[in-house]
């Protein structure tokens, strides 16, 4: 039994064309699954469905075998355990860095203020930002903000971490400091699903790469296979465009 099982998931926003049209995908424990595909193919939507930020219209999602989609599911509980980091960081601008990290553990998990702060400081030290604990997010660089956002999700001790193009909004020289954290997390065995345009990085860290197209997983496999010998014509032409743009 996979840690996360995604079965024939369908999702349509207002329009007629479904964004997700029968996605099936397994995420095993300790795996890093990379979602790739053209802009607008539904990577963000899929991630948002996994932690219940969006409802799904068909199919099902299971976590540890328990169905976490559909009516009656405690979404607050699901989101407590499935962390997500967004492309645009979304730190709370009215809270200091450390408060950003401790807010949910204190208010949602009921952790003591002191304990929560200690844990946050530990996490901040790991990303070398403990000196910035009492600064406000707007005093931090994009790379620093994104690292804090990752740590904020980690402070909830998630079962699985979803990362939605976490480096797309960053200046090129700030990308590596963020990706390094993801490398560390993989080392520790954190289960992750990441949507990314960083193909080189996907090739390096992915246990499995999934090419999303037309609302389905068009092709999936180990990175070596997908990147060097894609079977599918669409996958090939997508990767070709990426190579032409100098991104692989």
């Amino acid at each position: 039994m996979a840690l996360v099982e995604i079965r024939d998931v369908r999702k349509t926003y207002g329009g007629v064309v479904p964004v997700l049209n029968g996605i099936t995908l397994d995420v095993e424990e300790h795996q890093v699954v990379c979602l790739i595909g053209p802009s607008g193919c539904g990577k963000s939507t899929l991630l948002r469905c996994i932690n219940g930020l969006e409802g799904i219209d068909g199919g099902e999602i299971r976590l540890h075998g328990d169905r976490v989609s559909g009516p009656g599911v405690d979404l607050d509980a699901l989101r407590r355990d499935v962390g997500i980091v967004f492309q645009s960081f979304n730190l709370f601008p009215h809270m200091s860095v450390v408060d950003n990290i401790t807010a949910a553990p204190i208010k949602v998990l009921g952790l003591g203020r002191k304990e929560a702060r200690e844990r946050a400081m530990e996490l901040l030290a790991r990303i070398q930002l403990d000196k910035k604990a009492d600064e406000f997010p707007d005093r931090l660089s994009g790379g620093q903000q994104q690292r804090v956002a990752i740590v904020r999700a980690l402070a909830m001790d998630p079962i699985v971490l979803l990362l939605d193009e976490i480096t797309s909004a960053l200046d090129p020289e700030l990308v590596s400091e963020v990706l390094n954290i993801v490398r560390d997390l993989r080392q520790e065995g954190m289960t992750m699903v990441l949507a990314t345009h960083e193909m080189g990085f996907a090739k390096e860290v992915a246990s499995k790469v999934c090419f999303l197209y037309g609302g389905v997983v068009h092709e999936e496999g180990p990175p070596a296979e997908i990147f060097s010998d894609p079977h599918d014509e669409r996958t090939r032409s997508f990767l070709q465009r990426i190579i032409e743009a100098g991104r692989l």
């Binding site: 930020l53 509980a77 967004f86 979304n90 709370f92 208010k107 909830m156």
Partner: peptide
Amino acid sequence: SQTAAARSLGFSHSQ
């Protein structure tokens, strides 16, 4: 996106 960030951490609607 602020609401999305809060909800994704497990905050309820009123929290």
